[in-house]
Amino acid sequence: MSEKELKETILAVLATIAPEADLSEIDPDELLQDELDVDSIDFSNFVLGLYKKTGIEIPERDYPKILSLNGCVAYLLGKAVAS
């Protein structure tokens, strides 16, 4: 998966947990929790959504790495290359 595809995938998953949000207005370096006001259940639905779309299982200890859009892209890109 290319960086662009990964980003689109992430945005598609975000759209399911925050359907009312305008995703084009997200600051990619800010915390998604603050940008979208997601709670812990939303976040776990986000991680599950990413897993379903990419097959990448994100362990809890890595959650701090995926808290922003750019962080999430970089993390998944690294995982995709590693596998």
Partner: peptide, 11 residues
Amino acid sequence: GSGPDGAITRA
């Protein structure tokens, strides 16, 4: 729709 189960979202 692009939401869960093809639900239609604002986007």
